[in-house]
């Protein structure tokens, strides 16, 4: 329950503005009050809080963080990056091997997904993985590329990754 400090109305969790009086609950009150202004600043590049852009410039590097692991994995992406778990017996050696992050327990397939570079954008493709690939919670259909953005959350089975462009 979220009690509004302005009108004392009891709101459900998850609302961002009081359903009774419109009082904002999130972030810097002044900024949120003037959301329109916030968006305009953002458009001008002054203060970007949105989840990233899709532009992956020529010399950009792809940074992947596995949740709950501090180290950043950095890739200079050529054509594509295969993501999965290594299995020498099956001759599987993906570019991004998630074995050190509990890939088996989290349901990552050997060939789970790939990231393709097309001009200046990156596309995420599920490779018919058993437990699915999710982009910001949206399940991908097998073999159907979806555009990646800076800051996106990618989930392979139960394993959560965050991708950044730098």
């Amino acid at each position: 329950m979220k009690t509004c400090p302005y009108c004392a109305h009891n709101n459900r969790e998850g609302v961002f503005f009081c359903e009774e009086c419109g009082h904002p609950f999130v972030g810097d009150q002044e900024a949120v009050l003037a959301t329109t202004r916030l968006i305009q600043q953002e458009a001008a590049g002054a203060n970007r809080v949105a989840w990233g852009t899709a532009h992956f410039h020529q010399n950009a590097r792809l940074v992947v963080r596995v949740r709950e692991h501090p180290e950043a994995l950095v890739f200079h992406l050529q054509d594509e990056l295969l993501i999965g778990r290594a299995d020498p017996q099956m001759n599987s050696q993906p570019d991004l091997d998630l074995m050190p992050y509990g890939a088996v327990e989290q349901g990552v397939s050997r060939r789970h997904a790939k990231i393709q570079r097309i001009d200046e954008t990156l596309m995420l493709v599920d490779l018919e993985s058993t437990n699915g690939t999710y982009l910001n919670g949206q399940r991908l259909l097998p073999n159907q590329p979806r555009m990646l953005r800076d800051g996106d959350e990618v989930r392979l089975g139960q394993l959560v990754l965050h991708v950044f462009f730098s």
Partner: peptide
């Protein structure tokens, strides 16, 4: 198909500005 993670005390996150703006 849309899915979401449910967890105990998740980290505070800034809501996406597109949603915040539209909701405001």
């Amino acid at each position: 198909d849309i899915s979401v993670e449910v967890a105990h005390n998740p980290e505070q996150e800034e809501p996406p500005s597109v949603i915040l703006d539209a909701l405001g």
